[in-house]
Write a protein that binds this DNA or RNA. Structure first.
Length: 288
DNA sequence: AACAAATGCAACCGCCAGGCC
DNA sequence: CGGCCTGGCGGTTGCATTTGT
């Protein structure tokens, strides 16, 4: 699919548009084995006719093993609405508070669903004043409110207290625990585990070559079908269920993720934000 | 059934910030 | 200190799919 603007001349000869399962396999396999120290060099080393940016986007938005798939829950949507009121179009920061969700995904959900919903509710209840993305960013990036002031976001009053850490959160939104454990791109900084458990598929770069040369057409097709199922490209039935199990397993010991997965009440955004702040400071101490 | 309009979303782009030399 | 390189972010695009007529 040719999306976006006209291709830049230096990228002539590179693949564009939708990724094929084969490309996905190559990328997953390479990153799993070598990590992604240099996105620019990665496609060449992985044998992909893609630019580094494209590889990075594909990995972050679609192939990362820690991604949650499926529709956004009501609670997730409420959280997005509230955080958007706080942060404006800071999709990456909002995403950092929603484990398993990407900035791109959140941006899409906002633009396609939530914006319209807010608009509709505003028309229905003209007295309410939903904060616009720009106003949220602009107002908060300006003068800092004094202690005791209340920031009203989507009918949700947030007391602004300098001792509370809210202002710091807004301005210096910390990394989520998810990012702390797997980094922003979902891959450990050092790949040490020799067991290739990504997607539960036995992928190794060396094997790919053997696979390509020796596997029969049926074997290749079956393997790619399996990949499609794992990626959610194939409606195989219970793959989603398996993912939810994985998510549930990962919840233990992660306050923010637990919070979201168990009882993500939109009215508890303060709690959420506190958790993020707390967890961030704990991690900082641990690392220092 | 056929066509048009609306919607969803993956992937593109340019720009910017931070790190390195 | 300034230039270059890279990664990351936010905005935009257009194809595929769904819905309406």
């Amino acid at each position: 699919m040719g999306r976006g603007r006209a291709p830049c001349c230096e990228k002539v000869g590179l693949n564009k548009g939708s990724w094929t399962p084969e490309e996905d396999v190559r990328l997953i396999s390479y990153i799993r084995k070598h990590g992604h120290g240099n996105w620019r060099a990665l496609p060449k080393q992985a044998g992909l006719l893609r630019c580094g940016k494209s590889c990075r986007l594909r990995w972050i938005n679609y192939l990362r093993p820690d991604l949650k798939r499926g529709n956004f829950s009501k609670e997730e949507e409420d959280t997005i609405i509230n955080l958007h009121g706080l942060l404006g179009n800071k999709w990456s920061k909002i995403a950092s508070c929603l484990p398993g969700r990407t900035d791109n995904e959140i941006k899409n959900v906002w633009n396609t669903h939530l914006k319209k919903r807010l608009k509709a509710s505003h028309q229905f209840h003209p007295s309410t004043t939903p904060s616009s993305p720009s106003s949220g960013t602009t107002s908060l990036s300006g003068d800092r409110p004094t202690d005791g002031e209340v920031l009203s976001v989507d009918n949700f009053d947030i007391p602004l207290d300098s001792n509370h850490g809210m202002w710091e959160l807004i301005h210096d939104s910390p990394l989520s625990p998810l990012q702390q454990t797997v980094d922003t791109t979902g891959v450990p900084s050092e790949v040490t585990d020799p067991v290739d458990d990504i997607l539960g598929l036995p992928i190794e770069p060396e094997l790919w070559g053997d696979f390509e040369s020796s596997a029969s057409a049926d074997e290749k097709q079956g393997w790619l079908t399996l990949l499609e199922e794992e990626l959610g490209l194939f409606d195989g039935g219970d793959s989603n269920e398996a993912e939810m199990d994985t998510v549930a397993e990962e919840e233990d010991g992660d306050p923010v993720r637990n919070y979201f997965h168990r009882s993500p009440s939109s009215a508890s955004t303060m709690q959420l934000l506190d958790s993020v702040v707390l967890n961030s400071s704990e991690t900082t101490e641990t690392n220092s």
